[in-house]
Design a protein around this nucleic acid. Sequence first.
DNA 1: TAGTGGTCTAGACCACTTA
DNA 2: AAGTGGTCTAGACCACTAG
Lengths: 270, 270
Amino acid sequence: MQAGSSGGGSRGPQALGSGDGGRVRDSKTKHRTYEPAYVHIVRIVSARIAAGEYRPGDQLPSESGFCAEFDVSPMTLRRAVNILVDRGLVTTAQGRGTFVRGLYLGEASFTLQQLTDRWRDASTEVRLLTASIVPAREDVAVMLGLGPGDSAVFLRRLFLNDGHPFMCHSEFVVYDPRRPLVESQLQITSLDGVLKSAGGEGFARARLSIRAVNLDDETAGYLERPAGTAVFCLEHTFEDFDGAPVSWGQFYFLSDEFQLVTTLGADWPE
Amino acid sequence: MQAGSSGGGSRGPQALGSGDGGRVRDSKTKHRTYEPAYVHIVRIVSARIAAGEYRPGDQLPSESGFCAEFDVSPMTLRRAVNILVDRGLVTTAQGRGTFVRGLYLGEASFTLQQLTDRWRDASTEVRLLTASIVPAREDVAVMLGLGPGDSAVFLRRLFLNDGHPFMCHSEFVVYDPRRPLVESQLQITSLDGVLKSAGGEGFARARLSIRAVNLDDETAGYLERPAGTAVFCLEHTFEDFDGAPVSWGQFYFLSDEFQLVTTLGADWPE
DNA sequence: TAGTGGTCTAGACCACTTA
DNA sequence: AAGTGGTCTAGACCACTAG
């Protein structure tokens, strides 16, 4: 069992420490595709957890034990363990050991990446519905830190796939004649462009929240759905490097075209 | 500037290599709260990015440069850089350098942790509305891999806070007389208990998805909202270590009580 | 070829837990 | 005291990129 699991010809590159002529190694084996040792270890241990060989609550072999089994140095082993830790598969307790964790729904993590993947293809059209300079409404002024009478740029975009709208974006941007924000915003014609900070660089931070809302009449019209339909509302606020808000808006997207999906546990493809 | 940035008395513990009597170090300083060097570096560099000192697209100092500035070994510096990389703040390109990344909405990551945090307090009540063994409907049979005529356990729970319902859970569990799944399920009386794999250990994987849906009449009644109200629907499928599904169900929770929230960029508290 | 990131070593010392 | 995880070193060698 010991070194057997590295029989696939794991390492490849190998550092020769100070004077270690006697180091026996099963390297020299061919290793196209070259997989780093720590990745290899992560895969092996993940597979054991996924297969139930190590069960939730079980204590894993100690670091020195794993070092012996995989024939790596402590640092390399720890790197692998750290990865397992922040994937949520195991926990470590100083002085006690490393233990397999059970699943916990609260740790599920959803990303918007899928939104991009879903519509990255060229058939996605971005249609600019509105672009105007407007006096900031009460709520807009609050969110953008404007005074009464200040102006903001209002943008509305519709995203279509094969002619069918699936997302609508409304945004208020601080109007600052010095910065060409507006102009650069108007150039955006791709979903990627919009998602890329809704307008290139210059933003330091974004605060995001997702709600489930009923479509209002106007947005429902744009999305060609009945008013009241449940959709996702992704609200965003962008700040510059001084912490001042420069943009506030919402994406509305249809839930039947896009869901947040994820997986929990030791299985996802390495 | 060189070692200045570690003037706060960063390190504390310090490894003495082979024979390095002459190593000068600003340690020995008091260091309660002890912050590891790599964490320290992550904080410093993050702060510089957040402040706009390093701008998106900029190339960071080389590793050897940083090693000199922070007076650490390459491994320690790399550990810090790796953390920055998987926080999405920088990218590394072998042979070219390390660069600051701009924000990208597609990378936003939302977790359900907030759901737990929000209602971890004791005032949350879990009310078991239904618990029965039922013949598997068509859709249930498909999701659980059952044949026609097989049975499933149906559970429905309502979660209340100060007497106000905010979440409803419906679940079908494979009925297996050998396993005490049902019994253990019935013991659960806390939100944490439900989220913890909806019933203790024994699950290897979970597949989750979130949709925005309109409340149906029945669920609307439980949640005391008008039918049609937009809510989140978190659907889950749990599998055992053989990959066989053992549980399928949905959480419905009110969006006005709970949103998915996150932040993008270099700012979140270390 | 020079410079960059990427991996790895063979230890060291520390802090913590358990007995 | 023995065993565990946690951090760190001072290099080494590799792979890649660019002038």
